[in-house]
């Protein structure tokens, strides 16, 4: 079976169920929608929830939003859980309140992009689309 380019990239956008700040994630969801992506929008309780939903929904890329804590610990847990589930190939993007001291740890945990606010929506959408296309290509190989 041929794996076509993602005509409609599928993106999982998620944040912790205890993080009530959802303005950013909803804005990004609408921007991605207008950028031609299908966005699954859910809260997670545990990092493994993210992996379960990502697999069932067959998403091409995962975006995690942080507004109040857990940036590094949770991201590392998600990346690890993806690896354990055999889906280490799925790109993870983080955004929100990312402190300067979070950046190095996030990058070394394998996060593909970090959006710290003030980023052009256009560029955010482009990043998601590019990562989705790459992700789908890689899986097809």
């Amino acid at each position: 079976m041929s794996a076509p380019e993602p005509l409609v990239p599928r993106v999982l956008l998620t944040k912790s169920f205890i993080d009530s700040h959802d303005r950013a994630i909803k804005t990004i969801a609408l921007a991605l929608r207008d950028g031609g992506c299908e966005v699954i929008l859910v809260d997670y309780e545990t990092p493994s929830d993210v992996v379960d939903v990502a697999i069932d929904e067959d998403v091409d890329v995962i975006g995690v939003s942080f507004m109040s804590g857990g940036q590094v610990a949770v991201t590392q847990a998600i990346v690890t859980a993806l690896g354990e589930a055999g889906r280490g190939d799925l790109p993870v993007v983080v955004g929100g309140t990312i402190r300067p001291f979070d950046v190095d740890d996030l990058e070394s945990s394998g996060v593909r992009a970090i959006f710290r606010g003030g980023e052009k929506l256009e560029r955010v959408v482009e990043t998601f689309r590019d990562l989705a296309a790459e992700s789908r290509r890689r899986r097809a190989e």
Binding site: L32, I40, L41
Partner: peptide, 20 residues
């Protein structure tokens, strides 16, 4: 799906809570 972009916000799953 948006008729213009083809994208969509698929929000219904959030109402299901945990589905594992």
């Amino acid at each position: 799906s948006s008729p213009l972009s083809g994208g969509a916000v698929l929000g219904d799953r959030a109402r299901l809570g945990r589905t594992s």
